[in-house]
Design a protein around this nucleic acid. Structure first.
Lengths: 254, 254
DNA sequence: CCCGATCGCGAACACTGTTCGTTCGACGAA
DNA sequence: TTCGTCGAACGAACAGTGTTCGCGATCGGG
Protein backbone atom coordinates (compact mmCIF):
# COMPACT_ATOMS: atom_id res chain seq x y z
CA UNK A 1 0.00 0.00 0.00
CA UNK A 2 1.41 3.33 -1.01
CA UNK A 3 0.80 6.59 0.79
CA UNK A 4 -2.42 8.15 -0.42
CA UNK A 5 -4.32 4.95 -0.84
CA UNK A 6 -7.38 4.33 1.30
CA UNK A 7 -6.51 5.74 4.68
CA UNK A 8 -2.83 4.84 4.74
CA UNK A 9 -1.14 7.59 6.76
CA UNK A 10 1.32 10.03 5.29
CA UNK A 11 4.69 10.76 6.80
CA UNK A 12 4.49 14.28 8.19
CA UNK A 13 6.94 15.71 5.63
CA UNK A 14 4.52 14.83 2.85
CA UNK A 15 1.42 16.80 2.16
CA UNK A 16 -1.57 14.48 1.77
CA UNK A 17 -3.16 14.15 -1.62
CA UNK A 18 -6.23 16.31 -1.29
CA UNK A 19 -9.56 14.74 -1.90
CA UNK A 20 -10.51 15.64 -5.46
CA UNK A 21 -13.26 18.21 -5.63
CA UNK A 22 -16.04 17.35 -8.02
CA UNK A 23 -16.00 19.69 -10.99
CA UNK A 24 -18.82 21.91 -12.09
CA UNK A 25 -19.79 22.36 -8.48
CA UNK A 26 -20.61 25.98 -8.95
CA UNK A 27 -22.93 27.79 -11.27
CA UNK A 28 -25.06 30.86 -11.24
CA UNK A 29 -28.15 28.76 -10.65
CA UNK A 30 -26.69 26.88 -7.69
CA UNK A 31 -25.50 30.09 -6.09
CA UNK A 32 -28.90 31.71 -6.48
CA UNK A 33 -30.66 28.60 -5.19
CA UNK A 34 -28.51 28.55 -2.06
CA UNK A 35 -29.00 32.28 -1.53
CA UNK A 36 -32.74 31.88 -1.83
CA UNK A 37 -32.68 29.06 0.69
CA UNK A 38 -30.92 31.35 3.15
CA UNK A 39 -33.42 34.13 2.47
CA UNK A 40 -36.30 31.77 3.09
CA UNK A 41 -34.78 30.56 6.33
CA UNK A 42 -33.45 33.78 7.82
CA UNK A 43 -34.06 36.74 5.52
CA UNK A 44 -31.95 38.78 3.15
CA UNK A 45 -29.69 40.15 5.88
CA UNK A 46 -28.44 36.64 6.61
CA UNK A 47 -27.19 36.22 3.08
CA UNK A 48 -23.43 36.62 3.02
CA UNK A 49 -20.96 35.54 0.41
CA UNK A 50 -19.11 33.43 2.93
CA UNK A 51 -22.27 31.65 3.96
CA UNK A 52 -23.36 30.91 0.41
CA UNK A 53 -19.87 29.59 -0.27
CA UNK A 54 -19.86 27.47 2.88
CA UNK A 55 -23.18 25.90 1.91
CA UNK A 56 -21.55 25.01 -1.40
CA UNK A 57 -18.44 23.66 0.32
CA UNK A 58 -16.19 26.28 -1.15
CA UNK A 59 -14.74 29.69 -0.39
CA UNK A 60 -16.32 33.08 -0.89
CA UNK A 61 -13.82 34.06 -3.56
CA UNK A 62 -15.02 31.29 -5.86
CA UNK A 63 -18.43 32.87 -6.20
CA UNK A 64 -17.08 35.93 -7.94
CA UNK A 65 -16.35 33.88 -11.05
CA UNK A 66 -20.10 33.49 -11.58
CA UNK A 67 -21.57 36.55 -10.01
CA UNK A 68 -20.52 40.17 -9.86
CA UNK A 69 -21.23 40.52 -6.17
CA UNK A 70 -23.77 40.21 -3.43
CA UNK A 71 -26.20 42.67 -4.95
CA UNK A 72 -26.44 40.62 -8.09
CA UNK A 73 -27.02 37.42 -6.13
CA UNK A 74 -29.96 38.97 -4.30
CA UNK A 75 -31.31 40.53 -7.45
CA UNK A 76 -31.18 37.18 -9.23
CA UNK A 77 -32.92 35.56 -6.28
CA UNK A 78 -35.65 38.18 -6.51
CA UNK A 79 -36.06 37.55 -10.23
CA UNK A 80 -36.20 33.81 -9.67
CA UNK A 81 -39.01 34.18 -7.13
CA UNK A 82 -41.00 36.61 -9.22
CA UNK A 83 -40.77 34.27 -12.19
CA UNK A 84 -42.86 31.81 -10.17
CA UNK A 85 -45.85 34.11 -10.01
CA UNK A 86 -48.80 32.34 -11.57
CA UNK A 87 -52.38 33.35 -12.05
CA UNK A 88 -55.13 30.86 -12.85
CA UNK A 89 -56.07 31.11 -16.50
CA UNK A 90 -59.35 32.79 -17.04
CA UNK A 91 -61.46 34.75 -19.42
CA UNK A 92 -60.37 37.87 -17.51
CA UNK A 93 -63.77 39.40 -18.06
CA UNK A 94 -63.66 41.22 -14.73
CA UNK A 95 -60.54 43.34 -14.51
CA UNK A 96 -61.26 44.32 -10.92
CA UNK A 97 -61.24 40.73 -9.78
CA UNK A 98 -58.18 40.02 -11.85
CA UNK A 99 -56.37 42.89 -10.12
CA UNK A 100 -57.41 41.49 -6.75
CA UNK A 101 -56.20 38.01 -7.63
CA UNK A 102 -52.89 39.34 -8.89
CA UNK A 103 -52.39 41.53 -5.85
CA UNK A 104 -53.09 38.69 -3.46
CA UNK A 105 -50.91 36.24 -5.37
CA UNK A 106 -48.02 38.68 -5.38
CA UNK A 107 -48.48 39.39 -1.71
CA UNK A 108 -48.45 35.70 -0.87
CA UNK A 109 -45.47 35.04 -3.06
CA UNK A 110 -43.40 37.73 -1.38
CA UNK A 111 -44.64 36.79 2.07
CA UNK A 112 -43.29 33.29 1.59
CA UNK A 113 -39.76 34.68 1.26
CA UNK A 114 -39.24 36.79 4.36
CA UNK A 115 -38.12 40.31 3.43
CA UNK A 116 -37.47 39.62 -0.23
CA UNK A 117 -40.10 42.27 -1.04
CA UNK A 118 -37.44 44.78 -0.01
CA UNK A 119 -35.83 44.09 -3.38
CA UNK A 120 -39.00 44.90 -5.30
CA UNK A 121 -38.42 48.63 -5.04
CA UNK A 122 -37.20 50.31 -8.21
CA UNK A 123 -37.40 46.99 -10.02
CA UNK A 124 -39.19 46.68 -13.36
CA UNK A 125 -39.99 43.10 -14.36
CA UNK A 126 -38.85 42.36 -17.88
CA UNK A 127 -38.96 38.56 -17.93
CA UNK A 128 -41.60 36.60 -19.77
CA UNK A 129 -43.50 35.67 -16.61
CA UNK A 130 -43.88 39.27 -15.57
CA UNK A 131 -44.67 40.41 -19.09
CA UNK A 132 -47.34 37.75 -19.54
CA UNK A 133 -49.10 38.88 -16.39
CA UNK A 134 -48.73 42.55 -17.24
CA UNK A 135 -50.30 41.88 -20.62
CA UNK A 136 -53.25 40.08 -19.05
CA UNK A 137 -53.86 42.80 -16.47
CA UNK A 138 -53.41 45.60 -18.95
CA UNK A 139 -55.57 43.95 -21.61
CA UNK A 140 -58.36 43.20 -19.16
CA UNK A 141 -58.47 46.81 -18.02
CA UNK A 142 -58.42 48.28 -21.51
CA UNK A 143 -61.08 45.79 -22.59
CA UNK A 144 -63.08 46.83 -19.53
CA UNK A 145 -63.09 50.43 -20.64
CA UNK A 146 -60.29 51.82 -18.52
CA UNK A 147 -58.21 54.39 -20.43
CA UNK A 148 -54.81 52.89 -21.14
CA UNK A 149 -52.94 55.73 -19.46
CA UNK A 150 -54.94 55.16 -16.29
CA UNK A 151 -54.41 51.41 -16.48
CA UNK A 152 -50.67 51.84 -16.92
CA UNK A 153 -50.35 54.13 -13.94
CA UNK A 154 -52.56 51.94 -11.77
CA UNK A 155 -50.35 48.92 -12.37
CA UNK A 156 -47.27 50.95 -11.57
CA UNK A 157 -48.68 52.29 -8.31
CA UNK A 158 -50.12 48.95 -7.28
CA UNK A 159 -46.82 47.19 -7.77
CA UNK A 160 -45.13 49.75 -5.55
CA UNK A 161 -47.87 49.47 -2.96
CA UNK A 162 -47.84 45.69 -2.80
CA UNK A 163 -44.10 45.48 -2.29
CA UNK A 164 -44.19 48.18 0.34
CA UNK A 165 -47.02 46.52 2.25
CA UNK A 166 -45.33 43.12 2.38
CA UNK A 167 -42.05 44.67 3.41
CA UNK A 168 -43.70 46.68 6.15
CA UNK A 169 -45.54 43.59 7.31
CA UNK A 170 -42.27 41.71 7.56
CA UNK A 171 -40.76 44.53 9.61
CA UNK A 172 -43.66 44.36 12.05
CA UNK A 173 -43.28 40.62 12.22
CA UNK A 174 -39.62 41.01 13.09
CA UNK A 175 -40.38 43.53 15.80
CA UNK A 176 -42.80 41.18 17.50
CA UNK A 177 -40.98 37.94 17.07
CA UNK A 178 -40.03 36.13 20.24
CA UNK A 179 -36.75 37.11 21.82
CA UNK A 180 -37.27 35.69 25.29
CA UNK A 181 -37.66 31.89 25.14
CA UNK A 182 -39.83 32.04 28.24
CA UNK A 183 -42.37 34.12 26.36
CA UNK A 184 -44.87 31.59 25.09
CA UNK A 185 -47.12 34.08 23.30
CA UNK A 186 -47.28 33.94 19.53
CA UNK A 187 -46.03 36.74 17.34
CA UNK A 188 -49.61 37.70 16.60
CA UNK A 189 -50.43 37.90 20.30
CA UNK A 190 -47.46 40.13 20.98
CA UNK A 191 -48.40 42.36 18.05
CA UNK A 192 -51.99 42.50 19.24
CA UNK A 193 -50.90 43.50 22.73
CA UNK A 194 -48.65 46.20 21.33
CA UNK A 195 -51.41 47.74 19.29
CA UNK A 196 -53.83 47.52 22.19
CA UNK A 197 -51.42 49.42 24.40
CA UNK A 198 -50.79 51.88 21.59
CA UNK A 199 -54.52 52.44 21.41
CA UNK A 200 -54.59 53.04 25.15
CA UNK A 201 -51.80 55.56 24.70
CA UNK A 202 -53.81 57.41 22.06
CA UNK A 203 -56.91 57.28 24.23
CA UNK A 204 -55.21 59.07 27.09
CA UNK A 205 -54.14 61.93 24.84
CA UNK A 206 -55.68 65.29 25.77
CA UNK A 207 -59.11 65.24 24.20
CA UNK A 208 -59.20 69.00 23.81
CA UNK A 209 -56.14 68.98 21.60
CA UNK A 210 -56.96 65.79 19.73
CA UNK A 211 -60.74 65.54 19.75
CA UNK A 212 -61.13 63.61 16.50
CA UNK A 213 -58.31 61.19 17.19
CA UNK A 214 -59.54 60.60 20.72
CA UNK A 215 -63.06 59.97 19.55
CA UNK A 216 -62.04 57.43 16.93
CA UNK A 217 -59.13 55.50 18.39
CA UNK A 218 -60.91 52.25 17.68
CA UNK A 219 -61.16 53.11 14.01
CA UNK A 220 -57.47 53.99 13.89
CA UNK A 221 -56.56 50.67 15.47
CA UNK A 222 -59.07 48.59 13.54
CA UNK A 223 -58.05 45.85 11.18
CA UNK A 224 -55.03 43.66 10.89
CA UNK A 225 -52.42 43.61 8.20
CA UNK A 226 -54.50 41.66 5.71
CA UNK A 227 -57.53 43.93 6.01
CA UNK A 228 -55.39 47.00 5.54
CA UNK A 229 -53.64 45.48 2.56
CA UNK A 230 -56.88 44.68 0.81
CA UNK A 231 -58.37 48.04 1.68
CA UNK A 232 -55.49 49.65 -0.19
CA UNK A 233 -56.21 47.52 -3.23
CA UNK A 234 -59.91 48.39 -3.12
CA UNK A 235 -59.01 52.04 -2.68
CA UNK A 236 -57.00 52.09 -5.86
CA UNK A 237 -59.54 50.09 -7.84
CA UNK A 238 -62.30 52.43 -6.71
CA UNK A 239 -60.06 55.37 -7.52
CA UNK A 240 -59.69 54.17 -11.08
CA UNK A 241 -63.43 53.66 -11.30
CA UNK A 242 -63.98 57.22 -10.25
CA UNK A 243 -61.22 58.76 -12.38
CA UNK A 244 -62.31 56.77 -15.41
CA UNK A 245 -65.76 58.29 -15.11
CA UNK A 246 -67.42 55.00 -14.41
CA UNK A 247 -66.91 53.59 -17.86
CA UNK A 248 -67.60 49.90 -17.98
CA UNK A 249 -68.63 49.97 -14.36
CA UNK A 250 -70.88 47.19 -13.13
CA UNK A 251 -74.20 48.46 -11.81
CA UNK A 252 -73.86 49.48 -8.14
CA UNK A 253 -75.49 47.14 -5.67
CA UNK A 254 -78.33 48.12 -3.39
CA UNK B 1 7.84 79.86 30.11
CA UNK B 2 7.25 76.42 31.45
CA UNK B 3 6.57 73.36 29.35
CA UNK B 4 2.89 73.13 28.58
CA UNK B 5 2.34 76.84 28.19
CA UNK B 6 1.34 78.23 24.83
CA UNK B 7 3.24 76.20 22.31
CA UNK B 8 6.47 75.78 24.23
CA UNK B 9 7.87 72.39 23.19
CA UNK B 10 8.20 69.43 25.51
CA UNK B 11 11.35 67.44 25.92
CA UNK B 12 10.69 64.08 24.32
CA UNK B 13 10.93 62.16 27.62
CA UNK B 14 7.92 64.05 28.93
CA UNK B 15 4.45 63.27 27.81
CA UNK B 16 2.70 66.47 26.88
CA UNK B 17 -0.13 67.63 29.04
CA UNK B 18 -3.11 66.53 27.03
CA UNK B 19 -5.44 69.26 25.93
CA UNK B 20 -8.37 69.02 28.32
CA UNK B 21 -11.43 67.72 26.61
CA UNK B 22 -14.45 69.87 27.25
CA UNK B 23 -16.99 67.99 29.28
CA UNK B 24 -20.49 67.31 28.11
CA UNK B 25 -19.22 67.10 24.58
CA UNK B 26 -21.61 64.32 23.83
CA UNK B 27 -25.32 64.12 24.09
CA UNK B 28 -28.15 62.36 22.37
CA UNK B 29 -28.97 65.50 20.45
CA UNK B 30 -25.44 66.07 19.19
CA UNK B 31 -25.13 62.45 18.10
CA UNK B 32 -28.42 62.60 16.23
CA UNK B 33 -27.51 65.93 14.64
CA UNK B 34 -24.22 64.56 13.34
CA UNK B 35 -25.92 61.40 12.10
CA UNK B 36 -28.49 63.47 10.26
CA UNK B 37 -25.75 65.55 8.66
CA UNK B 38 -24.16 62.37 7.35
CA UNK B 39 -27.51 61.13 6.07
CA UNK B 40 -28.10 64.40 4.26
CA UNK B 41 -24.66 64.30 2.68
CA UNK B 42 -24.34 60.64 1.76
CA UNK B 43 -27.38 58.65 2.83
CA UNK B 44 -28.18 56.26 5.63
CA UNK B 45 -25.66 53.63 4.51
CA UNK B 46 -22.83 56.09 5.14
CA UNK B 47 -23.81 56.44 8.79
CA UNK B 48 -21.41 54.41 10.91
CA UNK B 49 -20.73 54.66 14.59
CA UNK B 50 -17.06 55.32 13.94
CA UNK B 51 -17.85 58.14 11.58
CA UNK B 52 -20.30 59.81 13.93
CA UNK B 53 -17.70 59.55 16.66
CA UNK B 54 -14.95 60.94 14.44
CA UNK B 55 -17.11 63.94 13.56
CA UNK B 56 -17.49 64.52 17.30
CA UNK B 57 -13.74 64.09 17.89
CA UNK B 58 -14.19 60.97 19.97
CA UNK B 59 -14.27 57.20 19.66
CA UNK B 60 -17.14 54.99 18.66
CA UNK B 61 -17.38 53.41 22.09
CA UNK B 62 -18.30 56.72 23.69
CA UNK B 63 -21.55 56.91 21.78
CA UNK B 64 -22.97 53.86 23.51
CA UNK B 65 -23.32 55.80 26.75
CA UNK B 66 -26.04 57.89 25.12
CA UNK B 67 -27.52 55.61 22.55
CA UNK B 68 -28.30 51.91 22.50
CA UNK B 69 -26.85 51.37 19.05
CA UNK B 70 -26.90 52.35 15.42
CA UNK B 71 -30.54 51.48 14.89
CA UNK B 72 -31.59 53.87 17.60
CA UNK B 73 -29.46 56.66 16.16
CA UNK B 74 -31.12 56.32 12.79
CA UNK B 75 -34.54 56.00 14.34
CA UNK B 76 -33.97 59.19 16.34
CA UNK B 77 -32.77 60.96 13.22
CA UNK B 78 -35.96 59.89 11.47
CA UNK B 79 -38.07 61.19 14.33
CA UNK B 80 -36.17 64.47 14.35
CA UNK B 81 -36.83 65.03 10.67
CA UNK B 82 -40.48 64.09 10.87
CA UNK B 83 -40.95 66.50 13.76
CA UNK B 84 -40.13 69.29 11.30
CA UNK B 85 -43.15 68.59 9.14
CA UNK B 86 -45.25 71.71 9.00
CA UNK B 87 -48.46 72.50 7.22
CA UNK B 88 -49.68 76.05 6.69
CA UNK B 89 -52.52 76.80 9.11
CA UNK B 90 -55.83 76.86 7.44
CA UNK B 91 -59.52 76.45 7.86
CA UNK B 92 -59.08 72.93 6.46
CA UNK B 93 -62.43 73.20 4.76
CA UNK B 94 -61.27 71.05 1.82
CA UNK B 95 -59.95 67.74 3.10
CA UNK B 96 -58.87 66.66 -0.36
CA UNK B 97 -56.60 69.64 -0.75
CA UNK B 98 -55.32 69.19 2.78
CA UNK B 99 -54.38 65.62 1.97
CA UNK B 100 -52.58 66.79 -1.15
CA UNK B 101 -50.68 69.44 0.79
CA UNK B 102 -49.71 66.97 3.46
CA UNK B 103 -48.61 64.36 0.95
CA UNK B 104 -46.48 66.82 -0.96
CA UNK B 105 -44.94 68.29 2.19
CA UNK B 106 -44.06 64.83 3.47
CA UNK B 107 -42.62 63.86 0.13
CA UNK B 108 -40.46 66.98 0.00
CA UNK B 109 -39.34 66.54 3.59
CA UNK B 110 -38.17 62.98 2.98
CA UNK B 111 -36.67 63.85 -0.38
CA UNK B 112 -34.42 66.40 1.31
CA UNK B 113 -32.81 63.64 3.36
CA UNK B 114 -31.63 61.09 0.83
CA UNK B 115 -32.96 57.62 1.70
CA UNK B 116 -34.28 58.49 5.13
CA UNK B 117 -37.73 57.45 3.90
CA UNK B 118 -36.44 53.90 4.19
CA UNK B 119 -36.92 54.28 7.93
CA UNK B 120 -40.56 55.28 7.57
CA UNK B 121 -41.70 51.69 7.14
CA UNK B 122 -43.40 50.15 10.14
CA UNK B 123 -43.09 53.44 12.01
CA UNK B 124 -46.07 55.01 13.75
CA UNK B 125 -45.60 58.66 14.64
CA UNK B 126 -46.46 59.33 18.26
CA UNK B 127 -44.83 62.74 18.80
CA UNK B 128 -46.83 65.93 19.11
CA UNK B 129 -45.94 67.14 15.60
CA UNK B 130 -47.23 63.97 14.00
CA UNK B 131 -50.27 63.87 16.24
CA UNK B 132 -51.17 67.47 15.50
CA UNK B 133 -51.11 66.81 11.79
CA UNK B 134 -52.99 63.52 12.13
CA UNK B 135 -55.67 65.34 14.07
CA UNK B 136 -56.01 68.01 11.40
CA UNK B 137 -56.21 65.50 8.57
CA UNK B 138 -58.56 63.21 10.41
CA UNK B 139 -60.81 66.03 11.59
CA UNK B 140 -61.02 67.58 8.13
CA UNK B 141 -62.07 64.29 6.61
CA UNK B 142 -64.68 63.50 9.24
CA UNK B 143 -66.00 67.03 8.99
CA UNK B 144 -66.12 66.58 5.22
CA UNK B 145 -68.38 63.58 5.57
CA UNK B 146 -65.88 60.76 5.23
CA UNK B 147 -66.67 57.85 7.56
CA UNK B 148 -64.04 57.75 10.29
CA UNK B 149 -63.08 54.16 9.54
CA UNK B 150 -62.40 55.09 5.93
CA UNK B 151 -60.47 58.17 6.95
CA UNK B 152 -58.31 56.17 9.36
CA UNK B 153 -57.44 53.57 6.78
CA UNK B 154 -56.77 56.16 4.11
CA UNK B 155 -54.21 57.92 6.30
CA UNK B 156 -52.53 54.61 7.08
CA UNK B 157 -52.27 53.57 3.43
CA UNK B 158 -51.19 57.02 2.28
CA UNK B 159 -48.38 57.15 4.82
CA UNK B 160 -47.11 53.80 3.59
CA UNK B 161 -47.42 54.88 -0.02
CA UNK B 162 -45.61 58.19 0.43
CA UNK B 163 -42.64 56.61 2.17
CA UNK B 164 -42.42 53.87 -0.43
CA UNK B 165 -42.57 56.31 -3.31
CA UNK B 166 -39.80 58.54 -1.97
CA UNK B 167 -37.64 55.54 -1.17
CA UNK B 168 -38.13 54.10 -4.63
CA UNK B 169 -37.37 57.47 -6.16
CA UNK B 170 -34.12 57.63 -4.23
CA UNK B 171 -33.17 54.16 -5.44
CA UNK B 172 -33.73 55.22 -9.03
CA UNK B 173 -31.68 58.33 -8.39
CA UNK B 174 -28.85 56.22 -7.07
CA UNK B 175 -28.96 53.94 -10.06
CA UNK B 176 -28.61 56.83 -12.47
CA UNK B 177 -26.14 58.94 -10.59
CA UNK B 178 -22.86 59.65 -12.32
CA UNK B 179 -20.15 57.07 -11.88
CA UNK B 180 -17.91 58.04 -14.76
CA UNK B 181 -16.56 61.58 -14.28
CA UNK B 182 -16.35 61.95 -18.05
CA UNK B 183 -20.11 61.53 -18.30
CA UNK B 184 -21.44 65.06 -18.32
CA UNK B 185 -25.10 64.13 -18.52
CA UNK B 186 -27.30 64.91 -15.57
CA UNK B 187 -28.93 62.22 -13.50
CA UNK B 188 -32.25 63.09 -15.10
CA UNK B 189 -30.81 62.72 -18.58
CA UNK B 190 -29.38 59.31 -17.77
CA UNK B 191 -32.69 58.22 -16.27
CA UNK B 192 -34.56 59.51 -19.29
CA UNK B 193 -32.27 57.62 -21.64
CA UNK B 194 -32.71 54.46 -19.63
CA UNK B 195 -36.47 54.65 -19.79
CA UNK B 196 -36.40 55.50 -23.48
CA UNK B 197 -34.34 52.41 -24.18
CA UNK B 198 -36.61 50.39 -21.90
CA UNK B 199 -39.54 51.60 -23.94
CA UNK B 200 -37.74 50.53 -27.12
CA UNK B 201 -37.21 47.12 -25.54
CA UNK B 202 -40.91 46.81 -24.82
CA UNK B 203 -41.77 48.00 -28.31
CA UNK B 204 -39.78 45.21 -29.92
CA UNK B 205 -41.62 42.56 -27.93
CA UNK B 206 -43.65 40.16 -30.07
CA UNK B 207 -46.89 41.99 -30.75
CA UNK B 208 -48.88 38.79 -31.05
CA UNK B 209 -48.00 37.74 -27.53
CA UNK B 210 -48.20 41.20 -25.97
CA UNK B 211 -50.70 43.11 -28.11
CA UNK B 212 -51.90 45.49 -25.40
CA UNK B 213 -48.48 46.24 -23.99
CA UNK B 214 -47.07 46.78 -27.47
CA UNK B 215 -49.88 49.09 -28.42
CA UNK B 216 -49.52 51.26 -25.33
CA UNK B 217 -45.82 51.42 -24.57
CA UNK B 218 -45.97 55.20 -24.52
CA UNK B 219 -48.62 55.10 -21.81
CA UNK B 220 -46.54 52.69 -19.77
CA UNK B 221 -43.53 54.96 -20.03
CA UNK B 222 -45.42 58.22 -19.60
CA UNK B 223 -44.82 60.53 -16.69
CA UNK B 224 -41.92 61.15 -14.42
CA UNK B 225 -41.62 60.43 -10.75
CA UNK B 226 -43.60 63.45 -9.62
CA UNK B 227 -46.53 62.78 -11.92
CA UNK B 228 -46.70 59.18 -10.79
CA UNK B 229 -46.50 60.16 -7.14
CA UNK B 230 -49.35 62.60 -7.45
CA UNK B 231 -51.41 60.18 -9.49
CA UNK B 232 -51.20 57.75 -6.60
CA UNK B 233 -52.46 60.40 -4.23
CA UNK B 234 -55.34 61.29 -6.54
CA UNK B 235 -56.11 57.61 -6.95
CA UNK B 236 -56.55 57.13 -3.21
CA UNK B 237 -58.52 60.34 -2.75
CA UNK B 238 -60.83 59.36 -5.59
CA UNK B 239 -61.07 55.89 -4.10
CA UNK B 240 -62.30 57.30 -0.82
CA UNK B 241 -64.77 59.47 -2.69
CA UNK B 242 -66.15 56.43 -4.38
CA UNK B 243 -66.15 54.15 -1.33
CA UNK B 244 -67.74 56.87 0.81
CA UNK B 245 -70.61 57.06 -1.64
CA UNK B 246 -69.87 60.63 -2.64
CA UNK B 247 -70.85 62.18 0.65
CA UNK B 248 -69.73 65.78 0.90
CA UNK B 249 -68.37 65.62 -2.61
CA UNK B 250 -67.90 68.92 -4.40
CA UNK B 251 -69.93 69.17 -7.58
CA UNK B 252 -68.01 67.64 -10.49
CA UNK B 253 -66.59 70.09 -12.96
CA UNK B 254 -67.59 70.30 -16.63
C1' DC C 1 -6.44 66.90 49.97
C1' DC C 2 -8.05 62.56 48.85
C1' DC C 3 -11.25 59.16 47.18
C1' DG C 4 -14.91 57.17 44.88
C1' DA C 5 -18.11 57.75 41.06
C1' DT C 6 -18.70 58.97 36.50
C1' DC C 7 -17.50 59.63 31.89
C1' DG C 8 -14.62 58.63 27.92
C1' DC C 9 -12.49 55.65 24.94
C1' DG C 10 -8.43 52.37 22.98
C1' DA C 11 -8.27 47.94 21.85
C1' DA C 12 -10.27 43.85 20.70
C1' DC C 13 -13.84 40.53 18.80
C1' DA C 14 -16.38 38.61 15.38
C1' DC C 15 -18.09 39.75 11.49
C1' DT C 16 -18.72 41.85 6.45
C1' DG C 17 -17.73 42.30 0.81
C1' DT C 18 -14.23 42.10 -2.25
C1' DT C 19 -9.51 41.40 -4.50
C1' DC C 20 -5.01 39.34 -5.39
C1' DG C 21 -1.99 35.94 -6.51
C1' DT C 22 -1.31 31.32 -6.31
C1' DT C 23 -2.45 26.53 -6.88
C1' DC C 24 -4.59 22.72 -8.88
C1' DG C 25 -6.74 19.62 -12.27
C1' DA C 26 -7.84 18.49 -16.78
C1' DC C 27 -6.89 18.38 -21.47
C1' DG C 28 -4.71 18.94 -26.08
C1' DA C 29 -0.24 18.69 -28.42
C1' DA C 30 4.16 16.69 -29.18
C1' DT D 1 4.07 9.58 -21.92
C1' DT D 2 5.36 14.06 -21.06
C1' DC D 3 4.80 18.89 -21.38
C1' DG D 4 2.40 23.27 -21.55
C1' DT D 5 -1.44 25.79 -21.17
C1' DC D 6 -5.54 27.51 -19.32
C1' DG D 7 -9.48 28.17 -16.70
C1' DA D 8 -11.50 27.25 -12.38
C1' DA D 9 -10.95 27.46 -7.51
C1' DC D 10 -9.62 29.50 -3.33
C1' DG D 11 -6.49 30.93 1.00
C1' DA D 12 -5.18 34.96 2.71
C1' DA D 13 -5.46 39.58 3.20
C1' DC D 14 -7.55 44.33 3.24
C1' DA D 15 -10.38 47.69 4.82
C1' DG D 16 -14.22 48.12 6.71
C1' DT D 17 -18.58 47.15 10.14
C1' DG D 18 -21.32 47.14 15.14
C1' DT D 19 -20.52 46.32 19.69
C1' DT D 20 -18.23 45.23 24.32
C1' DC D 21 -14.78 45.23 27.91
C1' DG D 22 -12.11 47.25 31.07
C1' DC D 23 -8.68 50.71 31.92
C1' DG D 24 -7.72 55.49 32.76
C1' DA D 25 -8.60 60.24 33.53
C1' DT D 26 -11.42 63.71 35.46
C1' DC D 27 -14.48 65.78 38.67
C1' DG D 28 -17.54 66.56 42.82
C1' DG D 29 -18.15 65.67 47.55
C1' DG D 30 -16.35 64.61 52.01
Amino acid sequence: MAPGESGFPFPPWHSPTPVPRPRALLSRERIVAVALAIVDAEGTEAVTMRRIAADLDTGAASLYAYVSGKDEVLSLAHDAVLANLRLPPGPDDDWRQLIRDWARATQQLYSAHQDLARLSFATIPTGTAGMDIAERLFAAMVRGGVPSSLAAQLLDRLALYIGADVFEGWLYGQRFRATDPADTRTTEERAQEFFVSLGAYFKQMPADRYPTVSAHVDDLMAGGGQERFEFGIELMIAGVDKLAGRLGEPPPEG
